[in-house]
Each structure stands twice: as C-alpha cells, then as structure tokens.
C-alpha cells in the first residue's frame, strides 16, 4: 500500500483486517482444546473476576475496624507464633 492511497481506502483495509482477525479469534474460541483438567480450569479462572462489590464491602467493613498490630510477644517469640 502506498502513501498516496486515499485515506478512506486505508480505513477500509484496516476494517477488513480487523474483521478477519475477529473471525479468526472467533474460530479459535469455538474450537478450544485442553490437554488436562488443570489447563481447562486455568482458562476458566482467567475468565472469572471478583465482583466489584467485594472490594466495596470490604472497604465498608474495614472502615469500622482497626488493623491488629503485631504484638510484642509475636516479635519476641517469632519462631513460634500462632498461625491463624
């Protein structure tokens, strides 16, 4: 494609490329294949996001709470603190 080409035809070509790319990705999506259950689960996990309300709820809950400070005996006896 030369630089002298009209702008509209550039756009058209770009649109065609995008459409082809979308079609290709659609085909790939339609024919997914996973070697193991874990691969499938990984794919599934990538599609899942925590709801935004989770963060909002946490924010509201934590506003009413102070963080628990590390107690002096935890620092002193760091080898054997109680793990929750």
């Amino acid at each position: 494609m030369s630089d002298m080409e009209p702008q509209s035809s550039k756009f058209r070509l770009q649109e065609q490329r995008q459409a082809a790319a979308q079609q290709q990705s659609g085909q790939q999506q339609a024919g997914l294949e996973f070697a193991t259950a874990e691969e499938l689960l990984r794919h599934d996990a990538a599609q899942v996001t925590p709801p935004p309300t989770l963060r909002q709820r946490l924010h509201l809950t934590l506003r009413g709470q102070k963080p628990v400070k590390r107690r002096w005996w935890h620092r002193l006896f760091a080898r054997n603190p109680t793990e929750p």
Binding site: L58, L62, Q65, P67, V68, H74, P84
Partner: peptide
C-alpha cells in the same frame, strides 16, 4: 455459587486483615 463465594472471599480477606501481622 457466586454470592456465597463473594461472602467467603469477604470473610477470608477480613481474617487476613486481622492476622496479617501474625503471618510468619
């Protein structure tokens, strides 16, 4: 279940918040 998972995740992070200082 999505709403149960949200509740669970909320409680988990609340626990984490409370005990983060104890994480060894």
């Amino acid at each position: 279940d999505a709403s149960e998972a949200e509740d669970a995740a909320h409680d988990v992070f609340l626990k984490v918040f409370r005990h983060l200082g104890e994480f060894r």
